[in-house]
Design a protein around this nucleic acid. Structure first.
Length: 807
DNA sequence: GCAAGAGGCATTTTT
DNA sequence: TGCCTCTTGC
């Protein structure tokens, strides 16, 4: 055991029962601090009390660049919040002069609360504490016209983004959508945006990334469409802010002067665009403090650059590096397991986590026969702990992929174990919420075509693709929004009577609601919109199981609107911030992916599925090789360090994947755990009869390393051998490599669209024209772009000039 | 225009 | 195996 350090517990009351998930260990009891401050008991800076020397250094080194390498559970959030408090308390900065950036809204919220607790109400005046995206959005709205937007631009969700991209691909007319799906293009473009690349900056060599070199052109067209729609996707918030800074040095300078102190949380997760964003803003004053942990970088696949943290000292010369290595979260054995494992990674800055805590229980490793047994045993283990008085809310099952959850959930349901899945679809990503928002968006912004498309036939109004296509054609030809096009078209004979009536009614309703926008409180307006549109009714009639929940969500949406001053503020919030927070207080087991677990902590953590191919994921290995393996290992490290007191790792010899049973081998990560901190347990054979109590687990003193002697291990080994002999592919090993574009005849997606001729042309009375539907005829009267035509066969009709051609 | 069936397909997802 | 998307037939 390491030399005893000062008894941390005296300064850091450890209370396993009260620590809510999401709070760093070592967080001070905020209320007692502020109470002390209020009581004036200490004239000096009480908020510094209880910081260890490194933490204190990280807080007090206010000038110049600072990199705080904060290992898991070392109190990084505390350092950040105390640093802010320190800047304010010493008068170095006013709250509005501090920029504090996080990745998640949750982290931002938490930081705000904790700063407020430290310095009192002043923190409410911290307008620049938020996520990269929300801060960027705020800046963009102030200077929208400089980036070809207006201040009320719409922030697109992923579904809107995909719909738009689909249209862009279709507009090309020459791309097989099957081979080149919008989803993939979205990935390519996101990647470029993550790297801070506007279309003209994308390296030529990457032109082939999509549809035989069309990627960049499509990107360009997509950006143009966004501008036309006065919209920005998530990536744009950063990219456009970056463009704003680059193209308008005066604007940049105003922010450089404003932000005298900058703080960044989770720095290891920044992507290139965010890095450039930070560097531009920090250029002048450079009082930049970044807190991060290279060992917890698990979003490389999403564009995060570990390099940003590895290069910090180089990029910010004279940077001070502070290492936080005292862990206040986990017991000795747990920490030893985590440290030992992560030491297998190369290319890390290197930290050694230490603790004064007792060694505690050893990490328990259990091999199960198959994934069903694994789920069953985990369930039993949880019940047993629960029976001994442990709170369910202090237990978590962390899986590599969501698909693992099913079996575990099934088991929990059977047992009647209350559980909660963390991470699922976000509140504002749910269909009913997106629909409701689309209504409100369209009412607030009649030019929001994406909103229009989303709801024009929801609830069903008998308006299908054909009708929408007609609206589109006119909208494009006349360069007007869809709603406007609809307004015109109902005055003509372009549409059949039924859809025409439906559209007329729809337009009428939108107009009416728009009129009410200033007269009615916005929550009231929303209620009216949802009722009168028939949207609520649609779900009331729906017999499916989740309809009730959706109605609840809608109610919740309307209710939450009341917290905002106006519709615009609400829309901003909901597109960026709104997240689910349901049932946090209840005593339930948490179930989530390892990714979702970052930043959380639990007394007891279960880590199932430690098998080759699953974890580390075969795909990560195939696609990113060694780097992929190291990221997987960091993910394992994140998983291990979530546990405070108890940690159980599991693997199964057989796992069902896509419905088929596969033999699996234990993860290499298991071999990377330190033998002396791990107990190997053996699960009962499947036929040995379960039941409670009993000696289900025979403790086997297996020699550690590569020679397990437990039956489960032997079975696994045997299976692996058998597999190797027969050349069968193991788990997840199929589908090797990259999808080579299969060459074949290009399907030309024939799309009969009215040619977009630009400016509407005027037809003189008497002109012979041709209409796709009505055939040839002569113009009888002209009213703007509306023509009355006597068709040779169809008789007199009102049509729009964009639908006829002069012959 | 819509609903039911076939076929393809399956990591991780802070905003 | 089960979900999601596209096609087909009414």
């Amino acid at each position: 055991m390491v030399a005893r350090m000062t008894r941390i517990e005296e300064d850091w009351p450890y209370d396993p029962g009260s620590g809510a998930p999401g709070r760093d260990a070592g967080a001070p009891n905020a209320s007692s601090l502020s109470a002390r401050a209020r009581a004036g008991a200490a004239p000096r800076a009480t908020y510094l009390d209880g910081l260890n020397p490194e933490q204190r250094e990280a807080v007090e080194t206010t000038e110049g660049p600072v990199l705080v390498l904060a290992g898991a559970g070392t109190g990084k959030t505390r350092v950040l919040t105390t640093r802010i408090a320190h800047l304010i308390a010493t008068g170095k900065a006013r709250p509005s002069g501090i920029l504090a950036v996080t990745f998640t809204n949750k982290a931002a919220r938490e930081m705000k609360e904790r700063v407020a607790a430290l310095v009192g109400g002043v923190a409410e005046g911290m307008p620049w504490l938020g996520t990269f995206h929300s801060i960027s959005a705020k800046i963009l709205r102030r200077h929208a016209e400089l980036v070809d937007l207006t201040s009320d631009f719409t922030i697109l969700g992923m579904d809107d983004q995909l719909r738009l991209l689909k249209q862009v691909i279709q507009a090309d007319g020459d791309i097989d959508e099957k081979r080149w799906p919008a989803r993939q293009l979205a990935g390519v473009i996101d990647d470029w945006k993550n790297r801070g690349l506007e279309p003209h900056r994308v390296p030529k060599g990457e032109a082939a990334s999509f549809a035989f070199g069309k990627g960049i052109a499509l990107y360009e067209q997509y950006q143009e469409r966004l501008k036309t729609l006065n919209a920005a996707d998530f990536g744009d918030l950063l990219l456009e802010a970056l463009r704003l800074f680059r193209e308008h040095p005066d604007v940049l300078e105003s922010y450089q002067d404003r932000f005298r102190y900058m703080l960044v949380d989770e720095y290891q997760d920044t992507n290139v665009a965010q890095y450039l964003w930070l560097r531009l803003l920090a250029q002048k004053r450079a009082n930049l403090a970044c807190v991060g942990d290279d060992d917890q970088s698990i979003y490389g696949w999403r564009g995060a650059e570990v390099d940003n943290i590895l290069r910090f000292e180089h990029d910010f010369p004279g940077a001070k590096v502070v290492r936080l290595e005292r862990n206040y979260r986990s017991t000795g054995h747990i920490l030893a397991a985590a440290s030992h494992l992560i030491a297998h990674n190369e290319g890390r800055l290197g930290k050694t986590l230490r603790t004064d805590d007792e060694p505690g229980e050893k990490v328990i490793l259990t091999g199960a026969w198959d994934s069903e047994e694994e789920a069953r045993l985990i369930g039993e283990e949880i019940e047993s702990l629960h029976g001994k008085g442990h709170n369910l809310s202090q237990m978590a099952v962390l899986v590599r992929i969501s698909a693992q959850m099913r079996e575990i959930e099934d088991r929990f349901v059977q047992l009647g174990l209350p559980y909660r899945v963390i991470g699922g679809p976000r509140f504002y990503e749910r269909a009913e919420i997106r629909d409701a928002l689309a209504y409100l968006r369209l009412v607030a912004q009649p030019a929001d075509d994406l909103a229009f498309e989303r709801i024009i036939n929801t609830p069903k109004r008998g308006l299908g693709d054909a009708t929408v296509q007609i609206l589109h054609n006119h909208s494009r030809a006349a360069r007007i929004p869809l709603l406007q096009a609809a307004r015109f078209l109902v005055e003509t004979d372009e549409l059949k009577p039924k859809p025409r009536g439906a559209i007329r009614e729809f337009v009428r309703q939108i107009d009416e609601w728009a009129k009410a926008i200033d007269a009615l409180p916005h929550a009231e307006l929303a209620r009216r919109v949802l009722d009168e549109s028939g949207y609520t009714e649609m779900w009331q009639r729906d017999k499916s199981a989740d309809a009730q929940g959706r109605l609840e969500n809608l109610k919740e949406l309307v209710r939450s609107m009341e917290d905002f001053p106006d519709l615009a503020a609400f829309l901003e919030h909901v597109s960026l911030v709104m997240d689910v927070n349901e049932g946090e207080g209840e005593d339930k087991v948490s179930l989530m992916t390892l990714h979702a677990a970052k930043g959380l902590e639990f007394d007891t953590v279960f880590l199932p599925g430690w098998e080759e191919g699953l974890f580390p994921s075969q795909r990560a290995l195939d696609e990113s090789g060694r780097a992929g393996l190291e990221e997987e290992r960091r993910l394992a490290h994140v998983g291990l360090t979530r546990a405070r007191r108890r940690l159980m790792i599991w693997f199964a010899a057989n796992r069902r994947i896509h419905g088929m049973w596969n033999a699996t081998a234990p993860s290499r990560f298991i071999d990377e755990l330190p033998e002396r901190s791990v107990d190997v347990r053996e699960a009962p054979a499947q036929f040995s009869g379960g039941g409670y109590g009993g000696s289900r687990f025979d403790q086997i003193a297996a020699p550690f390393g590569s020679t397990y002697s437990t039956p489960g291990w032997q079975r696994a080994q045997a299976n692996t051998r058998a597999q190797a002999e027969f050349g069968a592919s193991g788990v997840g090993r199929g589908r090797g490599g990259f999808s080579e574009p299969r060459r074949g005849p290009l399907v030309i997606e024939g799309e009969l669209v009215a040619k977009s001729t630009g400016a509407p042309s005027a037809f003189a009375v008497g002109t012979r024209v041709f209409h796709v539907k009505f055939g040839p005829g002569s113009v009888a009267a002209v009213d703007g772009n509306k023509l009355t035509v006597d068709f040779d066969k169809a008789g007199r009709k009102m049509v729009l000039d964009s639908f006829v051609e002069a012959t």
